[in-house]
Design a protein around this nucleic acid. Sequence first.
RNA 1: CGGGGUGUAGCACAGUCCGGUUAGUGUACCUGCUUUGGGAGCAGGGGGUCGCAGGUUCGAAUCCUGCCACCCCGACCA
Length: 491
Amino acid sequence: MAKVLTSRKENYAQWYNDLVIKAGLAENSAVRGSMVIKPYGYAIWEKMQAQLDRMFKETGHENAYFPLFIPKSFFSKEADHVEGFAKECAVVTHYRLRNSEDGKGVEVDPTAKLEEELIVRPTSETIIWNTYKNWIQSYRDLPILVNQWANVVRWEMRTRLFLRTAEFLWQEGHTAHATKQEAVDETRQMIDVYAQFAREHMALPVIQGHKSENERFAGALDTLAIEALMQDGKALQAGTSHFLGQNFAKAFDVTFANKEGKVDHVWATSWGVSTRLIGGLIMAHSDDNGLVLPPKLAPIQVVIVPIYRSEEQYEAVVAKGEEIRKQLLKHGISVKFDKRDTQKHGWKFAEYELKGVPVRLALGMRDIENGTIEVARRDTLKKEVMPMEGIDEKIVALLDEIQDNIYNKALDFRDKSIHYVDTWDEFKDTLENKGGFIMAHWDGTAETEQKIQEQTKATIRCIPFDNKQEEGKCILTGKPSKERVLFAKAY
RNA sequence: CGGGGUGUAGCACAGUCCGGUUAGUGUACCUGCUUUGGGAGCAGGGGGUCGCAGGUUCGAAUCCUGCCACCCCGACCA
């Protein structure tokens, strides 16, 4: 087969870039740092959205939409929050263009300067809490469980398709609660939703835990995250859920009368996942032949490729292929019958492998004569000739099997990549030579975490839930520690 | 934002150092014939403001100045 991708071994980053582009997921646009998500890539996002949206609704959330532009002054209200975002936002300063003097183009009309500049949202806490102020008077108005699907902009220095772009798509949930416990529970519930989505739909095992102070969201009291491991041994933060305490309620003066008639500030959470998930999906499962997509998120789950010579053969094979397509459709399988006469079957095989279609059916005269069909699975690259009879049931089962296999493969890799180390030398050696996750003791201070990061580039990905408590010594300072935390180099 | 690199056909590149035929190769595209259970072969054909704007020169893809974009490495981040 002709090689179209850089191999993972050769250059993992290049492999990723090649893959995103060659598989037709996305490409760089004419706008610095902003990508075009192409139909095939967007189809994956739509599948993710559909499932997540279902899960949000099941947990009682509703969708709404808040403005893209946020008055600059809103950002000065929550000090920690500003600190985290102030530096990297797009700012709207004018509202009109005019023809330039030389008549060759347009320029910003200097007389159309905005009284108050607008910030293109990097996240929506401020505008949302400004709005919630008007929605909430009594405990009877609570909780508010709202999610929005939106785009946000963060003026990133260095961008990579899906993983980090200046503009990206995401969902952000923003909830308001009467009690601290309710907000804490919500924060936890949503990280669990993300973890479940990652495992069951993305076939991506994740470790859930608390972020350290350094890695916490600006303005949050606690940040929960799901951390996934990529094939190159680097971690990817795949989703976060924040317990915001009363910080935003205080900043935006959102109060309510509780059952006792006393006025209190509202408790808040926010949580989000983005198109970055697509990057994680790619890097977790795909191989040197192209994408490997879990059936539950694959835009095309089954592709049928006809094999023929003459026109009569084409007719016969296409007729049979149509039958099979309809059979599969009845099971709710998304199936593409590629009966184009403009590409050879060999070309199609390679193409759908590159695009990560989980199952490929090849159908030729030989099959029609024998009542068989060739079934090829993308995850193992194995081919098998099966009886045509009852093929639909088999495909249904096969898709499940592929979903499980992809997950188990990723889980195996992840589990093999968690290293327990107790000394500084071991820590550095493991990072350099093995990569992956490292469970090690840490003295709990931000300074130590900072030093470790400066010296090794590794950060604390999370402090896992239900973490085993054990006495130990910090790998850097030797100070006492009660538990190991999860380190890794991260995207 | 700092360091490095690259902009030439849809894509990938050569040519640039040392200015001088009609700007070339692979691939993709079009036509025809042959082929056909893993990216087919042969023949013919079409496609270029050489990133943009100035400048030097008889003459610029090539030299000079400025700008823009993208990629890689760092600091920042989902």
